[in-house]
Nucleic acid binder design. Structure first.
Length: 215
DNA sequence: AAACAACGCAACCGCGGCGAC
DNA sequence: GGTCGCCGCGGTTGCGTTGTT
């Protein structure tokens, strides 16, 4: 049936993007918008596959991207959202204008995950320690900006389970009820965000972003 | 100063959903 | 209705940078 393959990858460049490629892609999208990623690189004069172009634009070149490290508040919010949404990075990223799913995913995998691991390790090594001790001092990490967010309520389901095996059932059920209500409220919010961030919004970029064409 | 390890980010890969044919 | 391709997503890898010995 009748569609052309996405890209045969023959003669296509891979690896890091050059400044010239970035300029070509940015200028093309700003002048023409995004209609079809498959044909875009050809029209823009790039020896890349559409997938690669899309990734570069979404994660690096988009003018509305927020640069710089994530703030503590953002980190806290990521942990909370992850506890509800799991590894749905695109949905989590939708709550952070200017942040990409890749950025958040990387942040989670490189930093937050590590902190949670440390929490779990400290828990395993101190199994004999009382629950009170775990809830207070044992969970605190040195220089940890998100220590307040490391409570079981803010961890993913599996992580919460791992951390809470020693804790009471009633405690968990209270959390479940609470987060159930939050889930409903949140889903409504997410639905609206998804609508606002639909691809139609990117086809007329110049109408949305007030920036110069020569980035 | 060199070698090695750890870290963090950018990019790639493979899969699933959805729509076109 | 079935097949195929595009798009988007999440997992993973590669590599440059930074820190440590």
């Amino acid at each position: 049936m009748g569609r052309k393959p996405c890209c045969d990858k023959v003669g296509l460049k891979r690896g890091s993007w050059t400044i010239q490629e970035d300029e070509k892609l940015t200028n093309f999208i700003l002048n023409n918008g995004i209609k079809c990623w498959r044909v875009l690189p050809k029209l823009a004069g790039l020896a890349r596959c559409g997938k690669s172009c899309r990734l570069r634009w979404m994660n690096y070149l988009r003018p509305d991207l927020k640069r710089g490290a994530l703030t503590e508040a953002e980190e806290d919010q990521i942990i909370q959202l992850h506890s509800r949404l799991g590894n749905r990075w695109s949905q989590i990223a939708a709550h952070f204008p200017g942040r990409t799913d890749n950025e958040i995913k990387n942040h989670w995998n490189t930093r937050i995950k590590k902190k949670l691991k440390l929490v779990e390790q400290s828990k395993n090594s101190d199994k004999h320690v009382s629950k009170e001790a775990i809830d207070s001092d044992q969970l605190k990490l040195a220089d940890d900006p998100i220590q307040d967010s490391n409570s079981s309520q803010n961890l993913s389901k599996s992580e919460s389970e791992a951390l809470n095996t020693d804790q009471s059932e009633s405690f968990n059920s209270t959390i479940d009820e609470h987060s159930k209500q939050e889930d409903e409220d949140h889903q409504h919010w997410i639905d609206n965000v998804d609508y606002l961030l639909s691809w139609d919004g990117y086809t007329n970029l110049e109408d949305i972003f007030p920036f110069d064409k020569h980035i």
